[in-house]
């Protein structure tokens, strides 16, 4: 992925399928608990994982988002959710111990989800992601298309940037005017961007075909990841945590 950080860690060395399934299990686990304390433990856990995978650099990038998510969910859930015995109310807003507990639980859960996702993209290359999907059983064409999309999105944004600059240089001002006027101003951007996209896709398809893409029959893989004890261990642990989490009475 774009945010991939080259680093040698246990998480980086995991089999790509383990990373994908592991991420899914981790996300499911966060939904198993309602208590803010349990959520806090999970959050601390994934933060430790992030630390071990050297993913803090990426977390720093989304720090503003993380803070916003936490503050917003704590404040809004606490004020709007009507549970338990409100000890304070003002119009639509109420506050109760339960609603505050819920607000924090939600905040920590969203943070844990964000951080797990970030850890995943920090330690998985696009090709590993595609490999992992194939190992789980997705067809090659689908996994390749997915990984290509990840790769092409940033490229496409640079292209858009060029077109925007080219038109700004000719005096296109996207900031002024009412909604209708502004919408019309996008025409000079859209035409060249479409031309670009069609041309790029055409060229890329030709380059892919010229290297044997679309050949029927067996295909080999350059990458190879052994599925070893640590993969079993991680998946086993997450599975046990999930079973325990979902079977135990909601705290």
């Amino acid at each position: 992925m774009v945010l991939y950080i080259p680093f040698d860690s246990l998480l980086h060395r995991l089999h790509p399928s383990t990373k994908i399934v592991g991420l899914a299990l981790l996300l499911i686990l966060t939904v198993a608990f309602q208590s803010p304390w349990y959520q806090l433990v999970i959050l601390a856990g994934v933060l430790l994982l992030a630390r071990s995978a050297g993913a803090f650099k990426n977390l720093r990038r989304i720090l503003p988002l993380m803070i916003t998510v936490l503050v917003f969910s704590v404040v809004s859930w606490s004020l709007f959710r009507r549970v338990g015995d409100p000890f304070w109310s003002f119009g639509l807003f109420t506050l109760s111990t339960e609603s505050i507990r819920f607000g924090f639980a939600m905040g920590f859960r969203l943070e844990a989800m964000l951080v797990s996702g970030m850890v995943f993209v920090s330690c998985t290359k696009v090709e590993e992601f595609a490999y992992g999907l194939r190992a789980i059983g997705l067809p090659f064409a689908v996994s390749f298309a997915l990984s290509l999309a990840f790769r092409l999105v940033p490229l496409f944004f640079t292209r858009i940037g060029t077109v925007v600059q080219a038109q700004q240089a000719r005096g296109l001002d996207l900031k002024s005017g009412n909604v209708l006027q502004r919408a019309r101003k996008y025409v000079p951007l859209l035409v060249p961007i479409f031309v670009y996209a069609i041309r790029d896709t055409d060229l890329l398809s030709m380059a892919l075909e010229s290297k044997g893409f679309g050949m029927r029959g067996r295909r080999t893989e350059y990458l190879s990841f052994p599925f070893v004890w640590r993969d079993y261990a991680i998946l086993g642990l997450l599975l046990i945590l999930n079973i325990a989490g979902w079977l135990m009475p909601v705290p």
């Binding site: 090709e127 029959g217 080999t220 350059y222």
Partner: peptide, 25 residues
């Protein structure tokens, strides 16, 4: 050359044709 490269590293880019031609690992 911008439009014909799509991999995240040099060796994977180079190996792509070999994978399609089913060359042994």
């Amino acid at each position: 050359f911008e439009a014909q490269l799509f991999s995240t590293n040099v060796e994977l880019e180079t190996a792509f044709a070999l994978e399609n031609f089913a060359v042994d690992r």
